[in-house]
C-alpha cells in the first residue's frame, strides 16, 4: 500500500521528468520499496534454508519408503482414477450447458438488454472468482462427501471460466455473414443454425476441451477436501504413512495429467 502512495501515479512521474534529481530520488525509493516487499515475504513464509538441507534427508527417507510403488494394488486404483476423470467430464459438460446461455447474455453484441448483460457478467465473474477448491468445500458441506460435490464444484467454476471465453468469442464474431443471410430472406432460426452455429461451434468445442484438461487436473486435488477421486486416496494413504501406495497414485496422476493434456491438444488441433 505504501508503494502506491510514495511513488505516485505514472503520469505524475512523467510530468516531473524534467526535474532529473527528483526522478532519480523517486527511482531509489522505488527500488527500496521493492527490496522491502521481497524481504517481508521471505520473513512471512519463514523461509529457512537450513530446513531445506535437513529436509533433503526427509525426502530421501520418503523416496526410500515409497519405492517400489505398490503396483499390486493397481486394480483397486482403477475405480478412483475413473472417478477423477468422470468428475471432470461431469463438471465440464454441466459447465458448458450453463455457460452457453449465460455467454449469449454476457456478450455485448447479442445481449437482449443492458441489465441482463451486467447480471450475466456478474454471475460469470463470481463463479470464476471463487476457486474450485472453495466451491468443493461448500458443496461437500451441502451434499456430503463423495464425487458429486466435486463435480458440482468443477461445474460452477467452469461456468465462470467458460462463460467469459464464450462471451469473448461471440463478441469477436464476424457479423457480416449474418447480415448477408438476413438479406437472402432466411429466417431467424436459419440464420442461427446456418451462420452463427457453424462460426462459433469449433471455437466453443476447442475451449471446452481445454477446460476438460484443466478440470481433470483440478479434479485430482478436489479429493483433499473430501470430494472423491484420486485426491481422496492420496490423502488417505499419506495419513496412513503407506508411501508405496502414495507413489502408485502419484504415477497415475502423472500419466493422467500428461495424457489428458496430449489428448486435448490433439483434438483441438484437429478442430482448428
Amino acid at each position: 500500500m505504501t508503494a502506491e502512495t510514495e511513488t505516485g501515479s505514472p503520469i505524475a512521474a512523467v510530468a516531473r521528468g524534467w526535474a532529473a534529481p527528483a526522478a532519480h530520488a523517486l527511482r531509489i525509493v522505488l527500488i527500496l520499496v521493492g527490496i522491502l516487499v521481497v524481504a517481508q515475504s521471505f520473513w512471512m513464509v519463514q523461509a529457512r534454508p537450513q530446513d531445506l538441507v535437513t529436509g533433503i534427508f526427509g525426502m530421501a527417507d520418503f523416496l526410500r519408503r515409497a519405492t517400489p510403488p505398490d503396483f499390486s494394488r493397481l486394480d483397486a486404483a482403477i475405480w478412483p482414477t475413473l472417478e477423477t476423470v468422470d468428475i471432470a467430464i461431469f463438471g465440464t459438460i454441466m459447465g458448458v450447458i450453463m455457460a452457453v446461455p449465460l455467454a449469449l447474455m454476457a456478450a455485448a453484441n447479442v445481449t437482449p438488454a443492458r441489465w441482463v448483460y451486467f447480471v450475466a457478467r456478474g454471475i460469470i465473474g463470481f463463479a470464476r472468482a471463487v476457486p474450485d477448491l472453495v466451491w468443493a468445500l461448500l458443496f461437500v458441506t451441502a451434499v456430503g462427501l463423495g464425487p458429486f460435490p466435486g463435480g458440482l464444484a468443477l461445474a460452477v467454476h467452469s461456468i465462470g471460466m467458460l462463460g467469459r471465453l464464450f462471451a469473448e468469442t461471440i463478441e469477436q464474431m464476424d457479423m457480416a455473414p449474418v447480415d448477408a443471410l438476413r438479406l437472402t430472406g432466411a429466417r431467424h432460426v436459419q440464420i442461427f443454425t446456418h451462420a452463427i452455429v457453424p462460426t462459433l461451434l469449433p471455437s466453443f468445442l476447442g475451449i471446452s476441451l481445454y477446460r476438460l484438461d484443466e478440470n481433470i487436473r483440478s479434479s485430482l486435488v478436489l479429493g483433499f477436501v473430501g470430494a472423491g477421486g484420486i485426491g481422496f486416496q492420496l490423502l488417505t494413504y499419506m495419513n496412513l504413512f503407506d508411501y508405496r501406495k502414495v507413489s502408485l497414485y502419484l504415477i497415475i496422476t502423472f500419466v493422467l495429467v500428461l495424457g489428458a493434456e496430449r489428448v486435448s491438444a490433439i483434438l483441438r488441433a484437429k478442430l482448428a
Binding site: 437472402t184 430472406g185 446456418h194 457453424p198 462460426t199
Partner: peptide, 16 residues
C-alpha cells in the same frame, strides 16, 4: 461463413 464448405455457403442463398 468461413468454417463451412463453399457449397453450403452457396446453398444458404436458397434458405428464403
Amino acid at each position: 461463413v468461413k468454417r463451412r464448405s463453399v457449397l453450403a455457403n452457396v446453398a444458404t442463398g436458397s434458405l428464403g
